[in-house]
């Protein structure tokens, strides 16, 4: 078995004295693990930093084997190391992909969005809003896309202000009525309207966090979202 692909490095673990086991999020092969021989060496270890874009060749005798990667660096994302918030964003993205996605299942749309948001960490000041939209897409890829197009109660497309914590459907202010206190606030930035303020981002991430927690508990038996995401939220709230 052999294939070649590009991907973002998600994690590295030492394997014996000289090798490493890495996880890469690739376009055509999804989240995929493999051994890098010499991965702990002075030459290769600096390339194996989470977030780095790699060109990988995976070889194994059988499909079910963990296999071995040979890696070539395509792009380092070392530029984020000096930026506390961007580094927290990078850690959150890598951790979320690791815990949310099953192994070896391609998610080409999410892959493209992941690379775009990783690139934005270094170049786009509005990357937190892009990260929020990336989490929405992640929910969709997990099979629970939010339906924010119209009110679940009245069918109206106007004045959408809440999200049902059960169905993930938008609810308008009129439709919510006395149930408003039990619904999740829907910020404009989740509807793709206007710039996202800090409070809007927090409200948006609270919505995606609610559904991601629920979906990951049922699909992946993960009880808590990664600590790295909590750290990002804490820094964004400052």
């Amino acid at each position: 078995m052999e294939w070649r692909d590009q991907g973002a490095l998600l994690s590295v673990r030492p394997h014996g004295e000289s090798a490493a086991i890495i996880e890469v999020f690739t376009a055509a092969h999804g989240r995929h693990a493999g051994v890098v021989r010499g991965g702990a060496s002075r030459r290769i270890a600096p390339l194996l930093q989470p977030g780095a874009q790699l060109d990988v060749v995976w070889r194994a005798r059988l499909e079910g084997h963990i296999g071995a990667f040979t890696v070539e660096p395509v792009r380092s994302r070392a530029g984020v190391l000096g930026d506390r918030l961007a580094l927290a964003g990078l850690n959150a993205i890598c951790a979320m992909v690791r815990v949310a996605l099953p192994e070896r299942a391609p998610h080409d749309l999410l892959y493209a969005a992941t690379i775009a948001v990783l690139d934005a960490l270094e170049t786009a000041p509005d990357w937190p809003a892009r990260y929020l939209r990336w989490e929405l897409l992640l929910l969709e890829e997990l099979g629970f896309g939010l339906d924010l197009g119209r009110c679940a109660v009245t069918g109206s497309r106007d004045d959408l202000a809440y999200v049902s914590p059960k169905t993930g459907r938008a609810v308008s202010r009129d439709g919510a009525g006395e149930w408003a206190a039990r619904l999740l606030p829907l910020p404009d930035c989740l509807l793709g309207q206007g710039p996202a303020s800090g409070a809007d981002l927090a409200a948006g991430l609270a919505v995606t966090g609610h559904f991601l927690t629920r979906e990951m508990a049922s699909l992946r038996h993960v009880q808590h979202l990664p600590e790295a995401r909590a750290r990002l939220l804490e820094l964004l709230a400052r």
Binding site: P46, P73, S76, R77, A78, G79, L81, G82
Partner: peptide, 11 residues
């Protein structure tokens, strides 16, 4: 040098 190191050195 890799591009990350050059970028950090330039900064």
């Amino acid at each position: 040098l890799d591009d990350g190191t050059i970028g950090a050195a330039l900064k």
